[in-house]
Simulated scan of single mutants.
Amino acid sequence: MWLAFHLLTGGTFLSARNLWNLSVQTASVGVMVGGMVLVIVMRHIDLSVGSILGLTGMIMAVLNARVLPDTSWSGWATLLAGLLVGAAIGAVQGAWVAYLNIPAFIVTLGGLLIWRGFAWILTSGQTVAPLTDRFQVFGGGLGGSIGGPWSWAIGAALVATVVVSDLRSYRRRARSGLPQRDPLLQVLVTALSVALIIGFILIMVGYPDPRTGLPRGMPVPVLIMLAVTALLMWVVRATRFGRYVYAFGGNPEAARLAGINTARLTVMVFALMGLLAALAGAIQTARLNAGTNSTGTLAELRACL
């Protein structure tokens, strides 16, 4: 598909500039995907994430443009307020599912309509703009990238992590007598992972800053997406919370009888989903430099698919 688009656009689609912009545009969805995976693993669904994204984005836009002064901390204060609202909305929806036994489909379908309505009521349908430069950093604006040297430093760290992780996993399975890949195949798999990382960094540094001509490097939204993905992977693989989520998804009744507080777990997962939707709202609102009522429309479909 990429090659077809590249040919149809006369060599524009696979340019560094277009791929850089696509990575920024998809970062908000990438942030929500991890939370949606946990929701789906627990046999639920959250259809309200697009509306939560829109509401929290509008709240952050109002705070940033009309309430908070333009100071060094205003961008972070705006983000924190949005995250708290998103987590609270998710927790409320999770409580309806966990303690009132209302299907998540019904609860979040109602949330899809309700939270979008609150976003409209908040500003009477007005678009709120412009936002401060410090908040726009979260959306990958002109100052929302880390430059070439730092991008290569992060790329080197990722390469080292992949190599060390694959090597440790190979040795651990060998000591345990578990079946594993042929050594040559393992080297090829690791080399492919390293090549993908290097290729990604090359694309990120291949798009120059229009003001200075220097490489823009990784955009902040992509860094946020990578950090969220890495954190959730660690949570799923190495924490009790992650094991409980998969135990609940395998057999909710067995998980409850095993002593897991399944109601609290459900609330926590939905609260996490709400927090990630708010984080996606911050990214998208900052990228647009405006809070609009249409922000996040149909984002629930993209996150679920």
Rank of each mutant, 00 (worst) to 15 (best):
A77H: 00
A27S: 15
S74W: 02
M42Q: 12
G54N: 03
I201T: 13
M58G: 02
A271Y: 01
M225A: 15
P208S: 11
I89D: 04
N293K: 03
G11E: 13
M58N: 04
T56M: 04
L272D: 03
W120L: 15
L113Q: 12
V164E: 06
V29C: 12
G250V: 05
G30S: 07
D133H: 08
S169H: 10
T161R: 04
V189M: 11
G147R: 11
P149N: 10
L158N: 03
I224T: 03
T239F: 08
V220S: 07
G125R: 09
T78S: 14
N64P: 00
V236E: 15
I52G: 03
A98G: 08
W115R: 03
V41L: 14
P252Q: 09
M218I: 15
I45V: 15
R168W: 10
G90R: 03
S151P: 04
R302C: 05
V49N: 04
V107E: 05
P179V: 11
Q186Y: 00
A282H: 00
I203S: 01
T132D: 11
Q186H: 13
V245Q: 04
P210C: 13
I224A: 03
V39T: 11
L63I: 05
V92P: 00
V137T: 14
P221S: 09
L14W: 04
A227N: 02
V267Q: 06
R116P: 06
F105Q: 09
R181Q: 11
